[in-house]
Amino acid sequence: MTAMNPQLPYRSFGSMSQSESKSPAQVMADRRVVVEGLTVHYRTVRALQDVSLAIQPGRLTGIIGPNGAGKSTLLKAMLGLVPVIEGTITYDDRPLTEQLERVAYVPQRSQIDWTYPATVWDVVMMGRVRKSGWFRRFSTVSRKVAMAALDRVGMADYRDRPIGQLSGGQQQRVFLARALAEEADIFCLDEPLTGIDQKTETVIFDILRELANADKTVIVVNHDLGEAITHFDDLVLLNRELIAYGDRQSVLHPENMHKGYGGMVNFFSTMAA
């Protein structure tokens, strides 16, 4: 499987191929999330066309692009949440959708019904459902893991609050705690930075950096191109197809940005690069 990598039509910009040789363990199993020829249609509308890339563990990867570029669709298609017309997504040389227990997914906040009768604790414990197994109650270990996750995002005092009474940033941190409680290898976050406060943004990037340092794979759909973008190591620039993929500086090259955003972007390249 590793032999095919050079032939893949990645539009990579340097950095991605070097880190591979670092650890001998990585040579045996491909710990990258490898997307090959991914095409997604919504009924008759083309959402993604022939996207191929390989996302590295140990780095913060951001997915950027204009509205309707298919950013969330790429994330969802990787996890099998939307029907894939063509293409494969593999991890450890096996289809990713067969090992979803290794994935923690944080949906967009707008996809959630916040009037649902659940407390912060109920939501974080959902991260332990899969680990607990069918027909079983949550174990003491699960409770400890969930409590630690809640503590890590600074929401331990809120555990008995109904989720509808939280601010947007607090809701996002609860979902991050749920993802942490899943003890996954791959973390996928769909627009976690939308409508949140500065404190939450700091907490989120602190934690994501920790995860990356622990050699986890971290993939974040990011809507705006503000200062937050400087936190990412690698970027995927989409506009229904892959425009550019690689380390941040190379992707944020004005030529790519012009291609991706059609010249409409008002971008502070100095700040981000």
Binding site: Y105, A118, E182
Partner: peptide, 22 residues
């Protein structure tokens, strides 16, 4: 009673539950 936690996860966040492999 047996499927309470799975059904709660699914009814609250169907996409999240699917992404967790339920």
């Amino acid at each position: 009673v047996l499927l309470f936690k799975e059904l709660q996860f699914y009814t609250f966040d169907p996409l999240g539950a699917q992404a967790a492999g339920l």
